[in-house]
């Protein structure tokens, strides 16, 4: 049932365009029936945050995202998969992460995108540091227990 899918994985400082990435994934395809695109943004934390600085482990970030994509495509019949994660300084309103999952039917696309996000949060080597508007630098964001629980729910 599963089509061979080669996931597109990119870790980059540059911004991305959801429309352009979706078009790229669908180019020349007529078999895709459902696309779920998730975009994670930098929020301003009630107006207090000036920017997030995302540190990553070059090489392992790409490798770990690829491993997560491989697990997702083994679990759901996906026709296409793109994951882009940014690093560096990102201001409120800016894009952080993009997951596009394509399949014949919507359920696989929804679930795969959700699965990938849950595991990106807990296994992809990225760390966020907060830069505040009042000039105070850098508290590292704490990992959330709720994120661990979110990824554990797939262990069935």
């Amino acid at each position: 049932m599963s089509v061979h899918v080669t996931p597109l994985v990119r870790v980059q400082a540059e911004d991305f365009d959801v429309g352009a990435e979706t078009a790229l994934l669908c180019q020349g395809r007529t078999d895709i029936g459902a696309i779920v695109a998730f975009t994670g943004l930098c929020r301003d934390e009630g107006g207090k945050l000036a920017a997030l600085e995302l540190e990553h482990y070059p090489g392992m970030a790409e490798a770990e995202i690829s491993r997560i994509c491989k697990q997702a495509s083994a679990r759901w019949p996906l026709s296409g998969l793109s994951v882009i994660h940014r690093h560096g300084k990102i201001c409120p309103g800016g894009n952080i992460v993009l997951v596009i999952a394509a399949s014949t039917h919507r359920q696989a696309a929804f679930e795969a995108a959700s699965f990938i996000m849950d595991f990106l949060k807990t296994r992809a080597p990225f760390w966020k540091k907060e830069w505040m508007k009042d000039g105070t630098a850098g508290n590292w964001v704490d990992a959330k227990e709720v994120d661990d629980m979110a990824s554990e729910r797939w262990e069935t």
């Binding site: 990553h56 992460v97 990225f126 990992a143």
Partner: peptide
């Protein structure tokens, strides 16, 4: 060998 805190990406 890499050492780091729990991850907070995504």
């Amino acid at each position: 060998i890499a050492f780091f805190p729990p991850m907070t990406g995504g």
